[in-house]
């Protein structure tokens, strides 16, 4: 039993690492050329990062988000049907970009749903701030524009209630707290 688990964990970790490292500038480019409507939206602030970050607060447009290293994940979710290819910026990358200094992250959704994510290896493991689903931006009606997703299919450890509770959609603000 233990062996099976260990093997599973090891495999999952390896796969996650591999996926996280697939950073494709091509994908970023294709998203950037998504048309006029998309260009407008790209100019609007869709995410605020406040608290322990450089300058006390940082606003992210889609464009700025897409300038950050892109990470993609292919997985199903319990809230959707079928396999979806999510593209976005790894939460760790984002926090690095804003030089976040804190122990936990408070994420707030449009409907004021809020959840806390510890800023450590376990908390950041696999977390991706997705802005594209199957190459298309996600409208609010489809859980967009930003959705923190995890590689659920990769391992059972991404299928816990805790992970599901951190899979916050319609993300609006991140606050880095001590």
């Amino acid at each position: 039993m233990a062996l099976r688990f260990a093997a599973g964990l090891l495999g999952a970790a390896a796969a996650a690492l591999a996926l996280c490292l697939v950073v494709t500038p091509a994908a970023a480019e294709s998203a950037a050329t998504a048309g006029g409507d998309a260009a407008d939206e790209a100019g609007a602030v869709i995410l605020e990062v406040t608290g322990g970050v450089t300058g006390g607060s940082q606003a992210f447009t889609l464009r700025r988000l897409r300038s950050l290293p892109v990470t993609s994940v292919e997985t199903s979710t319990i809230w959707t049907s079928g396999i979806i290819r999510f593209e976005g910026v790894a939460l760790a990358d984002l926090l690095a970009a804003v030089e976040a200094r804190g122990s936990r992250l408070r994420a707030v959704a449009l409907n004021d749903y809020a959840v806390e994510i510890p800023i450590d290896a376990a908390g950041l493991d696999g977390a991706l701030i997705a802005y594209l689903a199957d190459g298309r931006p996600m409208p609010v009606r489809e859980m967009g524009p930003l959705w923190i997703v995890f590689p659920y299919d990769l391992s059972a450890r991404y299928r816990s209630e805790l992970i599901y509770s951190r899979s916050i959609w319609q993300l609006r603000r991140l606050t880095v707290e001590d």
């Binding site: 319990i78 450890r157 816990s160 209630e161």
Partner: peptide
């Protein structure tokens, strides 16, 4: 149970 397929 832990890796539940359901959200809350």
């Amino acid at each position: 149970h832990a890796a539940t397929s359901r959200d809350n």
